[in-house]
Design a protein around this nucleic acid. Sequence first.
DNA 1: GGAATATCGTCAAGTATCTTGACTATATGG
DNA 2: CCATATAGTCAAGATACTTGACGATATTCC
Lengths: 167, 167
Amino acid sequence: MVKELDEKSEPLPDHVGWRLWQASRAWQTEFAAAMRAAGHAWFSEARAGLLGHIPRNGTRQSALIERAATSKQAVQQLLDGLEAEGVLERLPDPRDGRGKLVRYTSKGLDALRDGDRIKLEIERGYIDRIGERRFAALMEALRALDAGRGDEPEKATHSRDETAESK
Amino acid sequence: MVKELDEKSEPLPDHVGWRLWQASRAWQTEFAAAMRAAGHAWFSEARAGLLGHIPRNGTRQSALIERAATSKQAVQQLLDGLEAEGVLERLPDPRDGRGKLVRYTSKGLDALRDGDRIKLEIERGYIDRIGERRFAALMEALRALDAGRGDEPEKATHSRDETAESK
DNA sequence: GGAATATCGTCAAGTATCTTGACTATATGG
DNA sequence: CCATATAGTCAAGATACTTGACGATATTCC
């Protein structure tokens, strides 16, 4: 068999960006597989990214667009798909004739519940793998990183209040 | 302007998957913007993901397919694009009439160099933001997470040796 | 009140990425 | 030689996202 030349000599990346990307993809793959296995065949990563910005009590489509870091057209297309799947529904905003309110259907809420459960299972697996201490350090670093983004210092409120759920 | 109703009440996600996703996207966005600003207009996240699997001395296309977690067709299409951009080139494998060798052009190597520089700059920014201690903890946790995947426990080698570079 | 302007959402077309399936060419093992 | 496996390609379709143009309602200013 071939042997010489480039058999070894392949130092794969080991910087923050790469590690974050790999870890993120691994999580998403695991989560999506579990969601589909739980019967939510409509689930996809892009859709999950959007749903993460929709609180359980719904939101206005325009507010959603502000939070998701994409164009309004991208958001709309994802919403179209989710609405067609029966996960969400759009209602006219009674206070603004132009606006629409987005909210979950019972099917959507079911999916959120399953998602919460799966999320906790994956998290437990992570803790088993690397230990509670490291896991806590990971979360703390990620939160600190996020808190220190664009907007001012805002050193407060990175407390770990009861915001433990949502999805 | 509108005011009451759902102005607050939106606890955004705060679990590992979400945090990893957000952090990963933030990094990629920052990196891609810097790469384009540095004159590498052909740069994209998908392409970066593939390039990360191509060592500086090149590789065989088949070996690349094994490492990247996608289909050979997806890899090929990305390679087609990168070759068309002049970043990579494909040569016939002298030891296997079926195979092709993939390697960087000088343009590609230039991009790698810029990428290394930008990567370090971003990392420095992160350290400024959250401190060296937290940053080190973040990297250690991410490495441990990766080490403890599919393959056995393998509790060794999560040392933080000098593998600080590559790309 | 009414026109200018801004905001909310939609429609339509194009690009990038990734998937599946079918196919050619070369290698390998009997 | 023949059967099978491997390396790569070709083609078609799905998903996610982008840009540009547009209609409808709100808001602002006169």
